[in-house]
Simulated assay, not measured.
Amino acid sequence: MLELRRLRLLHELSLRGTIAEVAGALGYSSSTVSQQLGQLEREAGTALLEPDGRRVRLTPAGVRLAGHAARMLELDEAARAELRDSGGEASRVRIAVMPTAAQSLVPPALDVLVTRGAPVRLEYREMPPEEALFELAARTFDLVVAEQYPGHTRELRAGVDRTALGADPIRLALPRDDPARRLADLADRAWILEPAGTAVRDWAVQQCRAAGFEPDVRYEATDLTAHIRLVASGHAVAMLPDLVWADEAASVRLVDLPGPPEREIFAATRSASRRSPAIAAVRAALADALRLRRPR
Rank of each mutant, 00 (worst) to 15 (best):
A184W: 04
L113M: 02
F213Y: 09
P241Y: 08
P261A: 08
D242A: 14
L75K: 13
P261V: 08
L26S: 09
R16K: 06
A236K: 06
S273N: 09
R182C: 12
L58H: 02
A285W: 05
A199D: 15
L49K: 03
R274P: 01
G53L: 15
R274F: 03
I95M: 12
S29M: 05
A190H: 14
L230C: 01
E123Q: 07
R125N: 06
Y124I: 04
T100D: 14
A47G: 01
H68Q: 14
G88V: 02
R64N: 11
G62V: 02
V22K: 07
L105Y: 03
D52E: 14
H227M: 09
A101R: 04
L136P: 00
V244S: 11
R283N: 13
L174I: 06
R84F: 05
A164E: 12
G234T: 01
E130V: 03
R42H: 04
V93M: 06
R176D: 05
A81V: 10
P169G: 10
L75M: 15
Q207C: 12
A61Y: 01
D76S: 14
G67C: 13
P179E: 05
I19R: 15
L13A: 07
A96V: 03
A196F: 13
R121H: 08
W245G: 08
E41D: 01
D177I: 00
E21L: 10
M98R: 04
A187D: 05
L73C: 08
A272Y: 11
A173G: 15
T198Y: 07
S251E: 14
E41C: 00
A190I: 13
L49H: 00
D185W: 06
